[in-house]
């Protein structure tokens, strides 16, 4: 299976907010984080303050901390309708030297605007996959939208999510649209699964998207681990996103369990399919922040992996090589 063969990414590039960057220059990648995270609509809330200078300062400090601890690239996986601010991210990247990869996509259904769910047609049929595919692909080929103003840069991935209770028909349209956009543009897809990680992944595979163009996020949720989803996802050749490092709550396994899970996957020969991140929110508006430093994986979680017996090469593969292969535009 090709899934077990490292891709040759020597000449590949990755779409960052400052333009294409050689995949070899990404360094350590935090593959599922949030810079500015705004619940859709919160920007209008009477008690929500959006102070761009303050937001910039907070994010810049967090990015510098990440860089100080050896970080190279942050992937903002919030999609195109959850506070993404391309101009701010350009300035942050220029200022801090951290590569920033921003995402197209949106989801789950609950997070969509009415334009996609109850359009002004009779009947108000929700958007089909093909229209989402076009919306997402143009974010790569023509640039990311700054609403009603301009397009800037190119999205480096398409991020979407399914409803926690289970994938809805509109979620499925989002997934199929994301897969088609990935196929036409060469960027990868990052998903958060709903209630069944493998089933949700298979929606993308059904669109003929190669599994190694997909990261399935949230596989350090307790329900995923109980179902054996991390191993099944890796076996299918997709990337296993263990992207809540530092989160220990009712829904997620502990860091100790997370480290053991990584070790088990490496032992099973899937070291080239693991991705780690902390799902930190740099600045959150309209929802509680996950106030971890972007450097959490580097400073706190990697020592746990070493204690599990992982080698420096294993760690390098997980933090550098795997995200590089995923993010390289094909």
């Amino acid at each position: 299976m090709g899934a077990q063969t490292a891709e040759d990414t020597t000449g590949s590039t990755v779409n960052t907010v400052l333009g294409p960057v050689s995949a070899q220059q990404l360094g350590v990648v935090a593959v599922h984080e949030a810079l500015l995270s705004v619940v859709p609509g919160a920007e209008y809330g009477f008690d929500v303050t959006i102070d761009r200078a303050e937001i910039f300062q907070t994010l810049a400090e967090k990015l510098k901390d990440f860089r100080r601890h050896g970080g190279g690239t942050i992937v903002d996986s919030t999609g195109m309708f959850h506070g993404r601010d391309v101009r701010l991210y350009e300035a942050l990247s220029r200022t801090t030297g951290v590569h920033i990869v921003a995402s197209a996509g949106q989801g789950p259904e609950e997070m969509l605007g009415g334009y996609f769910l109850t359009p002004q047609t009779n009947p108000p049929t929700p958007w089909p996959a093909e229209k989402f595919a076009d919306l997402f692909a143009k974010e790569v080929t023509e640039g990311m939208v700054v609403p009603r103003v301009e397009r800037r840069g190119a999205a480096g991935l398409v991020a979407t999510a399914a409803t926690l209770g289970g994938m809805t028909p509109t979620d499925e349209s989002l997934f199929r649209g994301a897969a088609r956009a990935a196929l036409t543009t060469g960027v990868p897809v990052s998903i958060r699964y709903g209630s069944d990680a493998v089933r949700d992944l298979e929606v993308l595979l059904d669109e003929k998207l190669p599994a190694d163009r997909v990261v399935v996020g949230g596989l350090d949720r307790k329900d995923a681990v109980a179902a054996g989803a991390p191993l099944q996802v890796a076996t299918r050749g997709a990337y296993v996103g263990l992207d809540h490092a530092g989160t220990e709550d009712d829904a997620h396994i502990t860091d100790a369990e997370r480290a053991a899970l990584v070790a088990g996957l490496v032992e099973a020969g899937h070291g080239n399919r693991i991705l780690l991140s902390s799902n930190a929110t740099g600045v959150a508006k309209g929802h509680p922040a996950n106030d971890l430093p972007y450097s959490y994986v580097l400073t706190t979680f990697v020592p746990l992996l070493k204690a599990q017996g992982l080698s420096d090469e294993d760690v390098q593969r997980i933090l550098v090589d795997n995200p590089r292969d995923l993010l390289s535009v094909r």
Partner: peptide, 13 residues
């Protein structure tokens, strides 16, 4: 008037 989210679709800009 535009439905929320329509600002993401450049066809209306």
């Amino acid at each position: 008037y535009g439905m929320p989210g329509s600002e993401l679709d450049t066809r209306w800009w």
